[in-house]
């Protein structure tokens, strides 16, 4: 079973169907892969400026909006200066 067990209390990156990227600590999840994040922030990517972080706080994401959940490596996270990153936003899902 490809569960989300093991991600609870870890810092994760969520990529959503509309292309948004949200980081936060996974507080919990359920059978439908609905996810609750604490201390969450949206990361807004653009080619004109570095990554902008928008505080979202405690956030519930519906499972059907989720594309991917990745576990963030803290050491790697700290080695990256987000203000230097220039990238197009992730594309939305197209069926």
């Amino acid at each position: 079973m490809a569960t989300l067990q093991g991600y609870v209390d870890h810092r994760v990156l969520l990529i959503l169907q509309d292309g948004r990227a949200i980081v936060g600590v996974m507080a919990g999840y359920d059978q439908k892969s609905n996810v609750v994040l604490s201390n969450s922030k949206e990361r807004v990517y653009s080619m004109d400026a570095g990554v902008e972080e928008i505080e979202l706080g405690l956030y519930l994401v519906k499972g059907d909006q989720i594309v991917l959940i990745g576990e963030l490596d803290e050491a790697l996270e700290q080695s990256v200066d987000l203000s230097t990153i220039r990238a197009e936003p992730i594309l939305p899902i197209r069926y």
Binding site: A2, L4, Y7, L13, I15, Q17, A21, S33, R43, Y45, G63, D64, I66, V67, L68, I69, G70, E71, L72, D73, L76, E77, V80, I85, A87, E88, I90, I93
Partner: peptide, 18 residues
Amino acid sequence: ARHPHMMAVKNCFIRGSV
């Protein structure tokens, strides 16, 4: 280089439907 969004991600869960 074009997709640096997941630079610090080492393992992930992918939803089957996507």
